[in-house]
Amino acid sequence: NQASVVANQLIPINTALTLVAMRSEVVTPVGIPAEDIPRLVSMQVNRAVPLGTTLMPDMVKGYA
């Protein structure tokens, strides 16, 4: 099972992602792969992401 990126805190809309804001977890459905965490740092989310939410490619500006 592949680990996905999960919000480690509430991430407000247009907030730049940080290492502290993300964690890796095996979840269903699978979201952005955990190995992409370094690439996600400083990218912005295009919606509010609640704690525990799996990050999907369409939630991160410039990711997809």
Rank of each mutant, 00 (worst) to 15 (best):
N1E: 15
N1M: 15
N1W: 14
N1R: 07
N1K: 10
N1G: 15
N1I: 15
Q2P: 14
Q2M: 12
Q2W: 13
Q2A: 11
Q2H: 11
Q2R: 10
A3R: 09
A3G: 09
A3M: 12
S4N: 00
S4I: 04
S4Q: 01
S4H: 02
S4T: 04
S4G: 04
S4P: 00
S4W: 02
V5I: 11
V5G: 02
V5P: 00
V5T: 05
V5D: 00
V5K: 03
V6M: 04
V6D: 03
V6S: 00
V6R: 03
V6L: 06
A7R: 01
A7P: 01
A7E: 01
A7W: 03
A7S: 08
A7T: 10
A7I: 06
N8D: 08
N8Y: 05
N8Q: 07
N8G: 08
N8F: 05
N8T: 12
Q9Y: 12
Q9L: 13
Q9W: 11
Q9E: 13
Q9S: 08
Q9P: 02
L10W: 11
L10H: 14
L10P: 14
L10N: 15
L10T: 12
L10Q: 11
I11D: 01
I11S: 00
I11W: 02
I11C: 04
I11V: 07
P12T: 08
P12D: 08
P12R: 09
I13R: 12
I13Q: 12
I13E: 15
N14L: 07
N14R: 07
T15R: 08
T15A: 11
T15S: 14
T15W: 13
T15D: 06
T15P: 02
A16N: 08
A16R: 12
A16W: 13
A16Q: 14
A16I: 14
A16T: 10
A16H: 12
L17H: 01
L17I: 10
L17Q: 00
T18Q: 07
T18R: 08
T18H: 06
T18Y: 06
T18K: 09
T18G: 05
L19E: 07
L19R: 10
L19D: 05
L19G: 04
V20N: 14
V20L: 15
V20I: 13
A21T: 08
A21F: 15
A21H: 15
A21G: 07
A21L: 15
A21S: 13
A21Y: 15
A21I: 08
M22L: 12
M22Q: 01
M22Y: 04
R23S: 06
R23W: 04
R23I: 06
R23D: 02
R23V: 06
S24V: 12
S24C: 08
S24T: 10
E25Y: 07
E25K: 09
E25W: 09
E25P: 00
E25S: 10
V26P: 05
V26L: 13
V26R: 07
V26A: 07
V26S: 08
V27T: 12
T28Y: 12
P29G: 02
P29I: 05
P29T: 03
P29Q: 05
P29R: 04
P29Y: 04
V30I: 14
V30M: 15
V30Q: 12
G31H: 01
G31P: 00
G31S: 01
I32H: 00
I32K: 02
I32Y: 01
I32V: 07
I32G: 01
P33A: 07
P33S: 08
P33D: 05
A34E: 08
A34V: 07
E35Y: 11
E35F: 13
D36C: 14
D36K: 10
D36T: 07
D36S: 09
D36R: 09
D36F: 12
D36G: 04
I37S: 01
I37T: 05
I37K: 03
I37F: 02
I37A: 05
I37H: 01
P38K: 11
P38I: 09
P38Y: 13
P38E: 10
P38L: 14
P38V: 10
R39Y: 15
R39F: 12
L40W: 03
L40G: 00
L40C: 04
L40Y: 03
L40D: 03
V41N: 04
V41E: 05
V41S: 03
V41M: 06
V41Y: 00
S42C: 14
S42T: 14
M43H: 08
M43C: 08
M43R: 10
M43Y: 10
M43S: 04
M43L: 12
Q44K: 15
Q44M: 15
Q44V: 14
Q44W: 15
Q44I: 14
V45D: 03
V45Q: 00
V45P: 00
V45I: 05
N46Q: 08
N46F: 04
N46I: 12
N46G: 07
N46W: 08
R47I: 12
R47C: 09
R47T: 10
R47A: 08
R47D: 05
A48K: 11
A48L: 15
A48E: 13
A48F: 10
A48M: 14
A48V: 14
V49L: 08
V49A: 03
V49W: 04
V49E: 04
V49K: 02
P50T: 10
P50Y: 11
P50D: 09
P50A: 11
P50S: 10
L51C: 12
L51Q: 13
L51A: 15
G52T: 00
G52H: 08
G52Y: 03
G52W: 03
G52E: 04
G52F: 04
G52R: 01
T53Q: 12
T53Y: 14
T53V: 12
T53L: 10
T53N: 08
T54G: 01
T54P: 05
T54E: 03
T54C: 05
T54S: 02
T54I: 08
T54F: 03
L55Y: 00
L55H: 01
L55C: 04
L55N: 03
L55E: 03
L55I: 14
M56L: 09
M56Y: 07
M56I: 06
P57T: 05
P57H: 07
P57N: 04
P57F: 06
P57I: 05
P57Q: 07
D58F: 15
D58Q: 13
D58L: 08
D58N: 11
D58T: 11
M59V: 06
M59W: 10
M59Y: 11
M59C: 05
V60M: 04
V60D: 02
V60I: 13
V60W: 00
V60N: 02
V60T: 03
K61P: 08
K61W: 12
K61H: 12
K61F: 10
G62A: 08
G62M: 08
G62I: 04
G62E: 08
G62Y: 08
Y63T: 00
Y63V: 02
Y63H: 03
Y63E: 02
Y63W: 13
Y63P: 02
A64I: 13
A64H: 15
A64C: 15
A64M: 13
A64L: 13
